[in-house]
Simulated assay, not measured.
Amino acid sequence: MTIETTTMEDSEDDTQLGNESEEEDSELSDGALQEAFSKGLLRPGMNVLASKGKPCVNNEDGMKQCLIELSTKTLPWVERLDLTNLPAEDIVAKAEGRPPPPEGGVDAENDFQREMFFYRQAQATVLEALPLLKKLNISTRRPQDYFAEMAKSDQQMQKIRKKLISKQAILEKSEKAKKLREQRKYGKKVQVEVIQKRQKEKKDMMNAVKKYQKGMTDKLDFLEGDQKAPAGASQKNPKANAAKKANNAKRKSKDDRFGFGGKKSGKKWNTKESHNDVSGFSSKVAHGKGGKKGSKGKQNKRPGKSTRKNMKSRS
Rank of each mutant, 00 (worst) to 15 (best):
M1Q: 10
M1S: 13
T7R: 11
T7F: 15
T15W: 04
L17H: 13
E20W: 06
E24P: 02
S29Y: 03
F37R: 11
S38N: 11
K39E: 09
L41F: 10
G45R: 09
M46P: 02
L49S: 10
L49W: 12
C56Q: 12
V57G: 00
V57L: 06
G62I: 00
M63R: 15
K64E: 14
C66V: 08
L67R: 11
L70I: 14
S71Y: 06
T74M: 09
V78E: 15
R80Q: 14
R80P: 06
L81R: 10
T84L: 09
D90W: 07
I91S: 08
A95K: 14
A95F: 12
E96L: 02
P102N: 04
E103T: 12
E103P: 07
D107P: 01
A108G: 06
N110D: 15
F112P: 00
F112G: 01
Y119D: 06
R120F: 11
Q123I: 09
Q123E: 14
E128W: 08
L133K: 00
L136E: 09
I138G: 03
I138M: 06
S139W: 05
T140A: 13
P143V: 08
F147R: 14
A148E: 15
M150N: 15
S153H: 10
S153N: 09
Q155H: 10
M157S: 05
M157N: 02
Q158D: 15
K162R: 11
L164T: 10
S166D: 14
S166W: 09
S174P: 03
K178V: 03
K178F: 04
K179D: 09
E182T: 02
K185T: 08
K185G: 06
G187F: 11
E193G: 04
Q196Y: 00
R198W: 00
R198T: 12
R198C: 09
Q199E: 08
K200H: 03
E201I: 00
M205L: 08
M205N: 13
N207A: 14
K211M: 04
K211Q: 04
Q213T: 11
T217Q: 03
D218L: 07
L220M: 11
L220C: 14
G225E: 05
K228N: 00
A229D: 03
P238R: 07
P238K: 11
A240P: 05
K244T: 11
N247Q: 14
N248V: 15
S253Y: 11
F258G: 00
G259M: 03
S265H: 07
G266Q: 06
G266I: 02
K267W: 11
T271A: 01
E273R: 01
E273T: 05
S282M: 02
V285Q: 02
V285K: 07
H287E: 10
H287R: 09
H287N: 13
G288V: 15
G291S: 05
G294P: 00
K296N: 08
Q299V: 01
K301D: 05
P303A: 15
K305P: 01
S306N: 01
R308F: 02
M311C: 04
R314W: 01
